[in-house]
Amino acid sequence: MRRIPGANVLIVDDDEYNRKLLNIFISTEGHKPIEASSAQQALQLADSDHPDIILLDLMMPGVDGFELARQLKGNPRTADIPLVVVSALDDPAVAQRAISCGVDGFVQKPLDRWQLLQTVNKLLKIDAGAAPGTDADA
């Protein structure tokens, strides 16, 4: 699996504005965004495209982000993909619940671009000094 700049990032949010903002932040960092507007679409894309990391909203109609995280972590084909919650919910109990569902990171809305990219790069194990095309873990 790639652990270098240029990662495939699945953005899951039912709100188009939020998806577009995350798309801009991710693409300006050199990553390749993939967008899903529902949990069902996200499950299909995660299984078929196997992104390097998934950014997900918690509050979505139908299957919410908590259940989506459980399903992703429960599927052997997607269990290894790091999950980052991007949410306006500011409650330690919400963060704990997300962690119990398998989430690896948490970024608060309103979005702080630097915090988002630091979280993504940490989970992707990207070394800021690594040359493109090299594996920072090597």
Results as ranks from 00 to 15, higher is better:
M1L: 07
A42N: 09
R97K: 15
D49P: 00
A130Y: 00
D64N: 15
L111N: 12
L21I: 15
E29H: 01
D104R: 10
V94I: 14
V120C: 02
M59F: 09
A136N: 03
R2A: 03
L45T: 07
V9E: 12
A95W: 05
S37V: 13
K122F: 10
H50N: 14
T134N: 10
P110Y: 10
L123V: 05
L22V: 10
A36Y: 07
Y17R: 06
D49Q: 11
D90G: 02
Q40K: 12
G62W: 11
V12C: 08
G105R: 01
V107I: 13
G133K: 00
R77D: 14
N75I: 14
P132A: 10
Q118H: 04
D13T: 04
R2F: 04
G6E: 04
L116H: 08
W114K: 07
I11Q: 07
Q44N: 09
S38D: 10
K122C: 10
E67R: 15
D52W: 01
P61L: 09
L117H: 00
D64L: 08
P132D: 13
I126R: 05
P92G: 03
H50V: 12
C101Q: 14
T119Q: 12
I4L: 00
L10R: 01
A95L: 10
N23G: 15
L116W: 09
V85S: 07
V12K: 03
A46G: 13
R19I: 08
G133L: 08
L55G: 03
R19M: 12
K109Q: 13
